[in-house]
Design a binder for these strands. Structure first.
Lengths: 312, 312
DNA sequence: ATAGCTGTTGCCGAAACGGCAGCAACATGT
DNA sequence: ACATGTTGCTGCCGTTTCGGCAACAGCTAT
């Protein structure tokens, strides 16, 4: 099923690989063929699409516009294909997800497992990144669904849902704070703290609050892995900070305790956004998973906010 | 600028014309070429796209799916072209509008005239239809922007805005009712009435209300032209019904009087919707006009509802 | 200088495309 | 009933486009 002109597909490959010869290898054709199609395209558009550098090719402004068009075309072709396939009962395809680390402990594996229980022939491709990288991967068409901290998102992305989770301190069961219901940041920082590095968005949530405190002790440990921070907290090394999403199972085993943060009487929210390319219609199997994802996150938001009601 | 394979464009032409030979005439190619491209497409998709009848070709289910894809591709290509053109300062293109008759008296001509005053090279193509035909033309890709009574719209259309206007009686200045501020339907029907035929949506707004009345006299005149109905009312033939949108200028000249309907103490609303194909990104020049249209209709809605405040 | 990478360009065979004329199937009008 | 107009489809054949091979110039790193 290859109705679109080779120029379109070659251009797409060159954009992804950043090189004509690399694109030719991926496409299993000679590099000269790719080169010629690109030159033909540039002639038809009337303007260069790439800047030629000794190391490869970079998109020009017009090139980026064409890239957007080509992405729309190819993604919609995918959708068409899946529509035709599902007409004859074949419900299969690959859902590509880019998300931040908080989802990997419980939300995402639970959802994927249960979804595959029902739809065996839907495959998944997941990639864990920082929030801004998630959005970028989505913009570049490298993922279908993105889950990231809800920052300002570029206009070519659509925020499907926005869920708020309370940020809290995470400590081992034996920790002195563990018996409390909520904690303030100052109370936490009286103990050794495990802080996120700036590449994690938790850093940007907590930093302004920490800056307001009169006394800011040196962090005992800094890390860029939610997983590592959680395990450190479980071993009693110190107080870590994250949403309860990231410690679901361990919390159930009662090794870890989650204490929602109390910031001068109000909660500290961590906003999670679900994103999709705006100029796109998702294939049915992808949309189906997206709906479940939104529902599940909404359910977790409801449960957690019921378990930890707003501070009066 | 013809990057897309001939198969795509030929298919599009065949879908529009409903015939291979007619498509060939439009495309300035031999019918055999078109026939072969369609056959090739069907072979690649693995399923027939058209049903062959002695009179021409009709889309199959798969064909409609492909038509949707092809429409997305070609409309997005248009947008890409306009994006590239506007990069070099050339802001031109054609805005295609399908709308109901109420807009033709004042709203649309005013807007188009003022828009062309600022952007001389943006052309317009307008087509007046019934509400459901407007939506259908939009779905088929025959128009960019649709304005219609806000009925249930198909899922492939997006309602950009929804504005409510009061339905009222329209009478000549000398009419006995002309001195009133508002009128009830019963009061109107005491006089000869000019009714809309079922093909106009006003019919479907008024019919349920008329059915509730104990006494329903025969309509003096039935018509399917807003324009004609207005002119008849101006000549004192009877009472016509419409929103004030349709009688803007004549009302200013005081030949006609608009009397908002009072239905048991509450207004009778006529909802106007502005629609766009959902799976589509509009070219910049089209979007610009759309914004103005929404703003202008919002402004009229505000002004009219201020002039005729809700019945206490 | 050598080796490795980049994109581009002649040359040539292969594949795709399009035009012409003719086919069968069906509808319409005399 | 017959002629004439459709419709889409199919050999045949020339033209255009595409792709592979090999060679080239430009640049980088060793």
């Amino acid at each position: 099923m290859r109705f679109h002109s080779p120029a379109i597909q070659y251009f797409h490959a060159v954009r992804r690989t950043g090189s004509i010869r690399a694109a030719a290898r991926v496409l299993n054709v000679a590099s000269s063929a790719v080169s010629r199609q690109i030159l033909k395209l540039e002639q038809e558009v009337g303007s260069p699409l790439f800047e030629r550098t000794p190391r490869g090719l970079t998109l020009t402004t017009v090139g980026e516009m064409l890239a957007r068009h080509v992405m729309n075309v190819l993604q919609d072709l995918d959708r068409f294909r899946s529509d035709v396939a599902s007409l004859s009962g074949a419900w299969h395809g690959t859902v590509s997800i880019a998300c931040i680390e908080s989802l990997t402990e419980s939300v995402l594996p639970d959802l994927i497992a249960s979804h595959r229980g029902r739809a065996r022939r839907v495959n998944f491709s997941t990639e864990v990144k920082g929030s801004s990288d998630v959005l970028e991967a989505l913009s570049r068409g490298e993922a279908d669904i993105g889950i990231a901290m809800a920052l300002r998102h570029p206009p070519d992305l659509r925020q499907v849902a926005l869920k708020r989770f309370r940020l809290g301190a995470v400590v081992a069961r034996e920790h002195p704070l563990a018996r409390r219901k909520t904690v303030t940041l100052a109370q936490c920082l009286a103990f050794p703290a495990i802080h996120a590095l700036p590449e994690l968005s938790i850093y940007h949530l907590l930093q302004p609050l920490i800056a307001q405190l009169s006394e800011t002790p040196e962090p005992a440990i800094q890390a860029n892995s939610i997983d590592l921070m959680r395990e450190l907290a479980a071993r009693g090394v110190g107080v870590a900070f994250q949403t309860q999403l990231g410690i679901g199972r361990l919390s159930r085993d009662s090794q870890l305790v989650f204490l929602p943060l109390d910031n001068a009487g109000s909660p500290v929210w961590s906003d999670l956004g679900i994103y999709v390319r705006a100029e796109r219609t998702l294939p049915a199997y992808t949309d189906s998973f997206l709906q479940e994802l939104v529902r599940e996150l909404g359910e977790r938001e409801r449960r957690e906010n019921a378990a930890y009601p707003p501070i009066a």
